[in-house]
Design a protein around this nucleic acid. Structure first.
Lengths: 196, 196
DNA sequence: AAAAAATACTAATAAGTGTTAGTTTTGCCA
DNA sequence: TGGCAAAACTAACACTTATTAGTATTTTTT
């Protein structure tokens, strides 16, 4: 009856993806039904199939779109002339920006990827592992050049990624701090610590 | 047919809770069926009801047991004579220890709490907020005493908690680093940073 | 205005869910 | 050994799920 509004919202598929990301974030992928998703657009569940292939496809597109964003950023950072410290600053700030500007998608990608189907799941994890390894290489380089303390690069990266990936609970504090303040605060913390 | 083995595993309820935590962690709460859970003990799903009240009760017990552990630790830390820096060290190390020794439960508590029922959900979040506020107070004290840099305590705590709560993906690297090494590395990173 | 394409609808399916009722089996204690 | 409580079983319920088929309606194109 009521067609999906797409005037200012992009294509229909994009509207569906946006609403799906919101629901997947709030309730989880498994706990979100297609009926519920359809309801947000005032249509019936089967009508979704004029636009999508399956429920799983939605999760897939969300996770891989986000994944590609981070992979692309990593490529440009690796190709840049920044030193190790600047590279890490750039990456950490990118994580924070993404959480601000693309919260639902980033959250879903970080928390619901385990519900991807087998093949996609393994691709996703491969991509993540690659990202992680690139990150580790940057830290290793910084240690070798004595910009960083003689730390275990793997542990350092796991700590940083853990911190920035979990930052979504900053979302409830959004507008309380400006984006710039947060970027500065978190980056300085992860690089220089908090003790005097 | 096959009764739940409880010889060395504690009470039957405890066995169920342990297996539930494992499945909830691996597949998520919503994606775990009672039939699947029962299967791990070689019994049928309805037999579970001789031991539990509902599926939701399992999640509830897992989340609140973990919550109490952290709340209790916070109480002892607050009551101690350690300075702010030592207090934070102690807490960060406790997080890491818990992930090592109680992985499934901590993971489920950190990732599946959103599926708690209304009343319990609000209690859980209240408890978490309280924990967070106590943590912030410690940092505030450290800033006032000039042990720490003049940072925003809220941002600092969100970063630290984000880091330690996300550390579960250290699980795939377990035995690669010793617990002591990890505690030391992560704590030093979060307190003193990585730059020289 | 007619034809074509896009997109909505209703109805139905097969599979899976948590949970209850009622019954049988198991294992311990008198 | 007989009895009793604990704990297993089977059968069934009332829902919910993703998805398909077939059809009607709306929108776009000609």
């Amino acid at each position: 009856m009521a067609k999906i509004k797409t005037l200012t919202n992009g294509t229909k598929k994009e509207v569906i993806l946006k609403n799906a990301a919101l629901l997947f974030r709030k309730n989880g992928f498994k706990a979100t039904s297609l009926r519920e998703l359809a309801e947000t657009m005032h249509i019936e569940a089967p009508s979704l199939y004029n636009h999508i292939g399956s429920k799983g496809e939605l999760l897939q597109e969300i996770c891989f779109t986000v994944g590609k964003d981070f992979t692309a950023k990593m490529e440009t950072v690796l190709a840049s002339k920044e030193d190790s410290e600047e590279k890490i600053k750039t990456l950490v700030q990118f994580h924070i920006q993404k959480i601000y500007t693309d919260f639902d998608n980033v959250f879903v990608s970080n928390h619901e990827w385990k519900h991807l189907q087998k093949k996609q799941l393994s691709d996703f994890l491969k991509q993540r592992k690659q990202y992680e390894n690139n990150f580790i290489a940057i830290v290793q380089h910084g240690v070798k050049e004595k910009i960083f303390k003689p730390l275990n690069p793997q542990v350092v990266v796991l700590t940083i990624l853990s911190a920035v990936r979990g930052l979504e609970f900053l979302h409830s504090h959004i507008n309380e701090f400006s984006l710039a303040k947060l970027e500065e605060g978190v980056t300085q913390h992860l690089l220089t610590g908090i003790t005097k």
